[in-house]
Design a binder for these strands. Structure first.
Lengths: 400, 400
DNA sequence: GTGAAAGCGCTAACAG
DNA sequence: CTGTTAGCGCTTTCAC
């Protein structure tokens, strides 16, 4: 039947008079304007934007002059560091309003040493795990009246150092996710700004926050064992920090039950790599009856290819992810995973950062672990053993 | 069978000696350190971080002193605005290396008026459409040696103005997505910084970039009609800018074919709202044979609930999304959608912004439209008419 | 080629 | 209460 294949159908429609981006280039297709939007070409002669740029922004001096007071007075008024007589305050406010004055944060920062911004460096904004960290971090930053700067280091790994340095100089503190080797982390601390490391333990003396990867993996191991799986594989991603802990949690758990663990490697924590690794796992003669994926992205790619190889999940094989990205609910089958509470990670990380910025050296500094939670859906199922099923049923009841 | 229901199973594992975040609070569970990571409590007395903050960063003056030259010389050397005798350059470089000097971008910005950063204001980083815009924008920004600042306005709609102002003062230009009424956009332009509006046409004189929403919707209309659908619904989200164009594209297309369009409203461009709106559409006696969703998120939610209501997609009903978010491939059935090329939108938008920053007023300024592409997957199918099927088959052949 | 001096826009003592 | 003064760290003429 048609419709199953994925394809693109361009050019179904004839349109015109539009600047289009076609085959990677911006080209002008005719020049008459479409639905009145393009406007007449004459406006280009106006140097749009330029005109606006010309209008110099008013400075504190302009305000002071217009209000007939000194700039110091204006400064104090703006920062509400001092009250003045009603008349003066009214005049200043009027001047500010009239000039539409807004203070220049850069100038202020230079003196105060505070920037009013915090930074987040993450590995890949496309990964919902990191997206949610940013979301959470941003929320808390805004609550504190701070702006958020962000750097996606994946985009330019070679320049990670440079990027972090540049970022650090623009902010009052940063949250950093990095695969940088342990021995180089001190460089980040050397920036002289408060730092919270995320996703890995920090060097002694600095705070960090991460999900308890060991526990997450251990939970998954327990689940799979209780469900009766006996031949379990882990599709890991060694370069990532949490990989070690996940591997250890899983293997220690299985070891407790006298079960082996087979390890496979993906080349990235992505859907594509999950797709790549799949065949090598499901087509081997000793096919695992369950595979734990480095994260949900890998699991999604894995399940997709498995399906196309005629492997039924969970009937032929169980699949588990890690992270609980929002879309895991909508795969087919819905993905069993462990919730790493990414958004909360971002929120708590930012709170820690603000505590550090405020100079509070509470006893909480250190490595904060976020508790993972098992999210059971349909990509795993009970195998063989009746006993296992019963035990799980009990667990479910307890969980309510 | 068990395993179908989604549930969380906490506390399967007994762990200890960890700072955990449990039930929303950070609590300390014992204090002995886990696997050697927590370290001894004594380090808290060291005021970690504080010590590092003490170490003042070297300034250009320090470098000049150490190198035995004037600060002006150092400045010119750093900015490569002038060459010096080899000996001098070597000494300066040595001093820089020894002190690990990095120039303070804030101080530089104050003088040059350039910040070396660009800003992106988006509506919701959780929406993969925007995530990809940021991804693309960030890539281009980095290529140009710029940092990216970002603001998620959804997080604080009430403060949108304030956020944009603060952002604008820290950057050399910004890309703005906003639902702000037309008549308020001039305020954004009033910031005096180059702006590219994304997702909507800009006021006269400023550049903007968007996917051609009209074309996208028109394409979908054509597809559905050719597939033989006769009772088509649109689950729109009126507050969003592209909604109008999508609605218009769809209805004009259907009108051409003498077909009606029924409109429904979602209360947000999210999965949850797609779930909410579903029942009201599929349970009405005159059930549509196809529903076009405001975006992929809505479509995903919609399909999920439809399935649970016993509606088979695409057999009972076709569903189409817009955006082509990465996860649309992995829903069940895979989602037919229109690719809005979000990442490219971000890239091109940033390129436009840099052109504007550079002061190039090319003839390209204006409203740039990105060409959408139909992505046919499995959530739509041919209905009834043999003729339609044949015509589609021909279209497919042409598309190859 | 190199350096002295004048600020960028603002804050933070300290005077008055 | 209000103003004066001295910079923050850097760039940028303009002399030497």
């Amino acid at each position: 039947m048609w419709g199953v294949a994925e394809e693109r159908a361009d050019e179904w429609l004839e349109r015109e008079n539009v600047f289009r981006i076609l085959r990677g280039r911006v080209i002008l297709v005719k020049a008459k304007g479409i639905r009145g939007r393009m406007g007449d070409p004459s406006r280009h002669r106006q140097k749009p934007g330029k005109r606006l740029l010309m209008k110099k922004r008013p400075t504190i001096r302009d305000v002071a002059a217009l209000a007939g007071v000194s700039i110091a007075t204006v400064s104090k008024f703006i920062n509400s560091t001092q009250r003045f007589t009603a008349g003066v305050e009214r005049k200043i406010q009027a001047a500010i309003d009239e000039l539409e004055y807004h203070s220049n944060p850069l100038a202020r920062s230079m003196i105060t040493g505070k920037t009013g911004a915090v930074g987040v460096a993450i590995l890949d904004i496309s990964n919902p795990h990191f997206t949610n960290i940013v979301k959470g971090a941003n929320r808390v930053a805004l609550e504190h009246g701070y702006n958020l700067l962000f750097v996606d280091t994946e985009e330019s790994q070679a320049r990670e150092d440079e990027l972090l340095i540049a970022l650090s100089r623009r902010v009052d503190g940063l949250i950093v996710s990095t695969r940088m080797p342990e021995e180089q982390l001190h460089r980040v601390l050397g920036f002289g700004k408060p730092v919270v490391f995320s996703g890995r333990p920090a060097p002694k003396g600095s705070p960090s926050i991460a999900v308890d990867a060991y526990a997450a993996a251990y939970m998954i191991g327990e689940l799979l064992v209780k469900q009766g799986h006996r031949n379990i594989a882990y599709a890991g991603f060694a370069p990532a920090r949490p990989d070690t802990e996940r591997m250890r949690g899983l293997s220690e758990c299985l070891q407790t039950h006298g079960l082996p663990l087979t390890r496979f490697e993906v080349r990235g924590p992505t859907i594509v790599e999950g797709e790549q690794v799949c065949a090598g796992i499901v087509l081997r003669k000793d096919r695992p009856d369950a595979v734990v994926c480095y994260n949900d992205m890998v699991a999604i790619g894995f399940m997709s290819v498995a399906k196309s190889l005629g492997i039924s999940i969970p009937d032929d094989m169980s699949v588990v992810g890690i992270d609980n990205i929002p879309f895991g609910r909508f795969t087919s089958p819905a993905l069993t995973t462990v919730d790493t509470q990414s958004e909360r990670l971002g929120e708590e990380g930012m709170r820690m950062l603000f505590r550090e910025i405020a100079g509070e050296q509470t006893s909480e500094a250190g490595h904060v672990l976020i508790e993972p939670r098992l999210v059971m859906r349909d990509s795993t199922r009970v195998r063989h053993s009746e006993a296992a099923a019963a035990s799980i049923a009990k667990a479910r009841k307890r969980a309510r």
